[in-house]
């Protein structure tokens, strides 16, 4: 048997109606091009993170991720996620309830406005808060008079992260809740359930995987945000450095292996995110990518 034939057999066409698909050589060539492209742009960088991370041995790796400044960065990243994730999740659920379950004027404008933070460059997202809360900002003099520090401090990092992760849960839930309609809720209400009971017992079970899906993406962005956070953080080591900022500092100080060691933790987070996303897509009976 020719070697090409076994590859052709491996890359079979999903449709049973073979006659309208491409010929085997075309199929193999297209698959090869696609896989090579993905290997070059996805697999290679992922492999490189872990390879460079352990480049100076496991001892150096362990030291890099357990030194006090790295631990402070990990703590801050967890803190930022612990605030922005619940806040934006609660907002997303509220927004989806109002938008998906009711008709009102200006609805499509509201949906567009909710999407805004995704369209704004991360740097601009950080800048607007500097202009608002910074020393030369609109509220700067008032904040200084009351001794409140937002920019170059933790509150600024939290606010900027909330901004860039704002739409995740809402945009996941709105189409899902629109699909579900309002009949089930109305049935529960007419049977005497309170509004809150209806939400908890009827709506929530129907959309819980959708919420989780949004939370997974929201969390990944909250922990990994770089541009917006970098503008408002001021890079105070041990105080206002999140993990991505710590990676940047190490890298710029030519501590490549240490930078990649911390980066590898973020890469693990990315892999966990993808795994959770695939699992939830499977639970929701939805094919990957149907957003």
């Amino acid at each position: 048997m020719a070697p090409g034939a076994s590859i052709a057999a491996a890359i079979s066409v999903r449709a049973t109606r073979r006659e309208i698909s491409e010929s085997a050589p075309v199929r193999i060539a297209l698959t090869a091009v696609a896989l090579l492209f993905l290997a070059l742009f996805l697999a290679l960088p992922l492999a490189a993170v872990f390879t460079y991370a352990v480049g100076q041995g496991l001892g150096a790796y362990w030291a890099a991720i357990t030194e006090p400044e790295a631990l402070a960065a990990i703590r801050l990243t967890l803190l930022v996620a612990a605030i922005s994730v619940p806040l934006n999740t609660a907002f997303g659920v509220a927004a989806a309830w109002a938008i998906a379950k009711f008709e009102f004027r200006g609805k499509s404008t509201l949906v567009t406005l909710i999407d805004l933070p995704f369209a704004v460059s991360p740097v601009v997202s950080g800048l607007i808060f500097v202009l608002l809360f910074g020393a030369q900002g609109l509220l700067g003099p008032w904040l200084q008079a009351h001794d409140v520090k937002i920019i170059f401090a933790v509150p600024g990092i939290v606010i900027a992260t909330c901004f860039v992760t704002f739409p995740f849960v809402a945009r996941e839930l709105i189409p899902l809740m629109e699909e579900q309609g309002i009949e089930e809720e109305e049935a529960a209400l007419s049977l005497g359930a309170s509004g809150w009971q209806t939400f908890r017992r009827v709506t929530l079970p129907n959309v819980r995987y959708g919420i989780l899906f949004g939370v997974v993406l929201l969390n990944a962005r909250a922990m990994g945000e770089f541009g917006a956070v970098s503008v408002v953080s001021g890079h105070v080591r041990g105080l206002t450095n999140t993990m991505p900022l710590h990676v940047e500092i190490l890298y710029n100080e030519y501590q490549g292996a240490a930078a990649f060691a911390v980066a590898s933790l973020l890469a693990l987070l990315a892999i966990a995110t993808l795994a959770a996303k695939s699992f939830l897509e499977w639970r929701m009976g939805r094919r990957a990518g149907a957003r």
């Binding site: 990994g224 993990m243 991505p244 990315a270 993808l274």
Partner: peptide
């Protein structure tokens, strides 16, 4: 992956 991997990494 590009959605999930922090941009700095």
């Amino acid at each position: 992956l590009p959605f999930a991997l922090p941009t700095a990494v």
